[in-house]
Design a protein around this nucleic acid. Structure first.
Lengths: 122, 122
DNA sequence: CTCGGCCTTCAACATTGGTTGAAGTCAAGC
DNA sequence: GCTTGACTTCAACCAATGTTGAAGGCCGAG
């Protein structure tokens, strides 16, 4: 019987945009692409829950390590309806693992070139 | 008085494309954007040196960790005219450092969220 | 010297990740 | 209940990263 702040779809596009540090157009874009989810009011306006701004901030950082919006949305999609902290922990681990694998590929390729005697033409 | 294989601009677009594992159009694109450099024949055809295919392969892997073509070109541009192995080592370190910084930013942001008690809405 | 294959440029198209503007609708305060 | 600011959709546009196709030019083998 508490005031249910979590899971409540109360935030407008503008509020999420401000909280997420992006433009309102970007919030709509992320919703269209499944990074965040919204319910609609009777008047067809989007309402987001608290996770939206956070998801957007995570997405922005994840994009910097080369993940696409589609990939990020897919990772978020693995969350259950009522995610528990450990579900989010899984998401975090997946993102970091992906970033590390890509860095490892880069490192591996570069060191392979160097051990070949020269990096590129030398 | 040796046969000068390094630094010789002898390879065509098609040869570099095959060696780099990309399409010819991509080779021209990378040249336009400064990732690789070409001389021109009297008939205005591009001729590349041995480094071209290698630069392209490195660029492809670097793109996977979120670096843009522009950023990659800028890193390659720091190479002197006649790069020595250690100059390429610098490039490799720069690329890896950049990838690691981005991964660290991701990791830092995620752990900060988690230590805040919850990741996103929880 | 000619032929065929690879090269040239240029413009159009595709995809990703958005932004901007027009035209109209919703909702909250007065 | 009206006004005003924030919301809606839609289409156009942007930049990055290429691909594709047309129209034509270069070059090396015979």
């Amino acid at each position: 019987m508490t005031v249910e702040t979590s899971g409540a779809y109360t935030l407008t596009v503008g509020e999420v945009a401000a909280a997420g540090g992006v433009a309102a157009s970007a919030v709509r874009f992320y919703e269209q692409h499944g990074v965040i989810h919204a319910e609609r009011t009777a008047g067809d306006q989007r309402r987001f829950d608290d996770s939206a701004a956070c998801r957007i901030r995570v997405a922005k950082v994840a994009q910097r390590v080369g993940l696409t919006v589609r990939e990020i949305a897919e990772i978020f999609d693995r969350l259950p309806e009522q995610p528990r902290p450990e579900d989010w922990g899984q998401v975090a681990e997946t993102l970091i693992r992906e970033a590390e694998e890509r860095t490892a590929a880069l490192r591996s390729y570069l060191s392979q070139l160097r051990s070949g005697g020269r990096l590129c033409e030398m």
